[in-house]
Computed example of a mutant assay.
Amino acid sequence: MPMPLSDHPIITIAFDPGISPKSGGLPGLDVLRSVVNSINLFGIVAVVGALAVSLGVWAWGHHTGGHQAEANGKKGAVVAAGAALGLGAANGIVAFFSALGTQVH
Score class of each variant (00 low, 15 high):
Ala81Lys: 01
Gly25Val: 03
Phe15Lys: 00
Phe96Thr: 13
Lys75Phe: 12
Val47Arg: 00
Thr102Gln: 14
Ile13His: 13
His8Ile: 02
Asn40Ile: 13
Ile44Met: 02
Pro2Glu: 10
Val79Arg: 04
Ala69Glu: 09
Gly101Ser: 05
Gly61Ala: 06
Trp58Met: 06
Leu87Gln: 02
Leu85Ala: 05
Ile93Asp: 11
Val53Lys: 05
Lys75Asp: 05
Ala71Glu: 08
Leu41His: 07
Val47Glu: 04
Ile19Leu: 10
Leu100His: 11
Phe15Cys: 09
Ala95His: 15
Val57Ser: 01
Gly66Ala: 05
Val45Glu: 11
Gln103Trp: 11
Ile11Met: 12
Pro17Ser: 00
Ser20Lys: 13
Gly61Ile: 02
Val45Cys: 06
Gly65Thr: 04
Leu32Tyr: 14
Thr12Lys: 01
Ile44Gly: 00
His105Asn: 11
Ile39Tyr: 04
Val104Pro: 00
Ala83Tyr: 09
Ser34Leu: 03
Ala50Glu: 04
Ile93Pro: 01
Met3Arg: 13
Gly92Trp: 03
Ile44Ser: 11
Gly101Glu: 05
Gly82Asn: 12
Ala52Cys: 14
Thr64Phe: 09
Asn40Asp: 13
Gly88Trp: 00
Val79Glu: 08
Ser23Leu: 13
Met1Leu: 08
Ala77Cys: 10
Asn40Lys: 15
Ala89Pro: 12
Gln103Thr: 15
Val45Lys: 13
Ala71Lys: 07
His8Lys: 11
Ser23Ile: 15
Pro17Val: 04
Lys75Met: 08
Pro4Lys: 12
Gly66Gln: 04
Ile11Gln: 06
Asn40Glu: 08
Asp30Tyr: 06
Ala46His: 03
Pro4Ile: 00
Gln103Arg: 12
His62Thr: 14
Pro17Ile: 01
Ile10Gln: 13
Gly86Ile: 00
Ser6Leu: 03
Val45His: 06
Ser38Cys: 08
Val47Gln: 08
Ala69Cys: 02
Pro21Lys: 03
Gly73Cys: 03
Phe42Val: 11
Val36Leu: 05
Val47Ile: 04
Gln68Asp: 15
Pro27Lys: 07
Val53Phe: 15
Gly73Val: 01
Gln68Phe: 14
Leu5Arg: 09
Ala84Tyr: 00
Lys75Thr: 12
Leu41Ala: 04
Pro9Asp: 01
Lys74Gln: 15
Ala83Gly: 11
Ala59Gly: 14
Val45Gln: 04
Pro2Tyr: 00
Ser54Gly: 01
Asn40Tyr: 14
Pro17Cys: 07
Asp30Gly: 09
Trp58Ile: 01
Gly66Asp: 07
Ser23Thr: 09
Thr12Asn: 15
Phe96Ala: 10
Asn40Gln: 09
Val47Gly: 02
Ala14Pro: 00
Val36Thr: 15
Phe96Met: 11
Gly28Trp: 02
Leu85Asn: 02
Ser23Gln: 08
Gly56Glu: 05
Leu55Arg: 05
Ile11Thr: 14
Leu55Gln: 14
Phe97Val: 10
Ala83Val: 08
Gly56Met: 06
Ala69Leu: 13
Gly25Asp: 10
Ser34His: 11
Val57Met: 01
Leu32Gly: 01
Phe97Trp: 15
Glu70Ile: 00
Ala81Asp: 02
Leu87Trp: 07
Ser34Thr: 05
Phe15Ala: 07
Asp16Lys: 04
Ile11Glu: 13
Ala77Tyr: 07
Gly86Tyr: 13
